[in-house]
């Protein structure tokens, strides 16, 4: 919880994240869990001596999820010359991290592909995918480690918005009305209605789903990157990727505005016009090849 929220409601400081969020999101208990194999794969790849076959066997226990993962593996986005027919083969070619991230991507897209609410899920996921590609490209361009994890951070940075849409739909209607009336950032309207933001809600989900701490942190802090004390690179990348994606008009970030880039982040990442130009160019090219990702929503 950040200091502003503590000041607005001191009683809440004593409560746990879950208890506090239950007051905001009435149906929090209904939030789905991820398929069990996701956690099993996460556990397995933490062992440095694990082999591709073992992880492949775990994954194929969930045939539907394996098939969806293979659809992403074989998408134009990765552009392999030959079809990859098994998850074990995918792990050999792409590595544990990347396949794990695609499993996670397929699971989350599947869980949050729609609902009985007036909300454009496709535009939401276009913004998420654009941010994912932008985050991965940016970390590759800056030669940062674990650039494949940046993809997931970009993809899920706004996942809290979907939780509000699906599990507190009446509050979301109020948030959208404020955004339209004031032409402000969605985060400002969320503060007004929820006294918290999608970043906090998303981080709660990431923690509940046992995502790695750096991913949880990037989701929690992407609008306040300067306050981060650990895993700062992933948070900085996510902050910039969100802004790049909004500047390139991919999908819908929930409002018609763009958040201001943090000066400290720009300097810390040693960003310049050329880097930005390369990242935007590659992001635009990559975004054209993500049809298979969006098809998982159908």
């Amino acid at each position: 919880m950040n200091s502003t929220e503590s000041k607005t409601n001191p009683d809440m400081a004593e409560m746990t994240d879950t208890e506090r969020l239950k007051e905001i999101i009435e149906k929090l208990d209904d939030v789905p869990s991820l398929p069990t194999v996701v956690a099993e794969v996460n556990r397995a790849i933490r062992n440095p001596r694990v082999d591709a076959n073992t992880v492949g066997q775990i994954l194929t226990r969930d045939q539907a999820l394996s098939a969806k993962t293979l659809k992403l593996v074989n998408s134009a986005f990765y552009g392999f010359p030959h079809r990859i027919n098994s998850v074990t083969r995918a792990i050999i070619v792409m590595g544990f991290q990347r396949v794990r991230n695609l499993v996670l991507t397929a699971s989350v897209l599947d869980k949050f592909k729609g609902g009985n609410v007036d909300f454009d899920f496709s535009s939401f996921w276009k913004h998420a995918l654009g941010s994912a590609i932008s985050a991965e490209t940016l970390s590759q361009e800056l030669k940062l480690q674990e650039s494949e994890d940046a993809f997931v951070a970009g993809l899920l940075h706004d996942i809290g918005k979907l939780l509000v849409v699906l599990y507190a739909p009446e509050k979301f209607v109020r948030i959208r009305a404020i955004v339209n009336k004031k032409n402000c950032l969605i985060i400002e309207a969320e503060e007004e209605v929820l006294e918290t933001t999608h970043s906090t809600v998303g981080a709660w989900l990431a923690k509940t789903w046992q995502f790695p701490p750096k991913l949880t942190q990037a989701i929690r802090m992407h609008h306040d990157p300067q306050s981060v004390r650990e895993y700062y690179e992933m948070t900085y990348i996510t902050h910039v990727a969100d802004i790049i994606c909004r500047a390139l008009n991919f999908g819908d970030g929930g409002d018609k505005k763009i958040p201001k880039i943090n000066d400290h982040v720009w300097k810390a990442l040693k960003l310049d016009k050329n880097i930005l130009d390369n990242v935007m160019k590659k992001t635009l090219e990559g975004f054209d090849k993500t049809k298979d990702f969006l098809q998982l929503l159908q």
Binding site: I243, L248, K257, K260, I261, K273, L276, D277, M280, L284
Partner: peptide
């Protein structure tokens, strides 16, 4: 298209850079 999105930062150098690079790429 980007005018309204960026209208809160008319004099911010970094935001103007982001805007111009985005326009050129799009």
């Amino acid at each position: 298209l980007l005018e309204q999105k960026f209208c809160d930062f008319p004099d911010n150098v970094l935001m103007n850079t982001i805007k111009s690079v985005a326009i050129s790429n799009l």
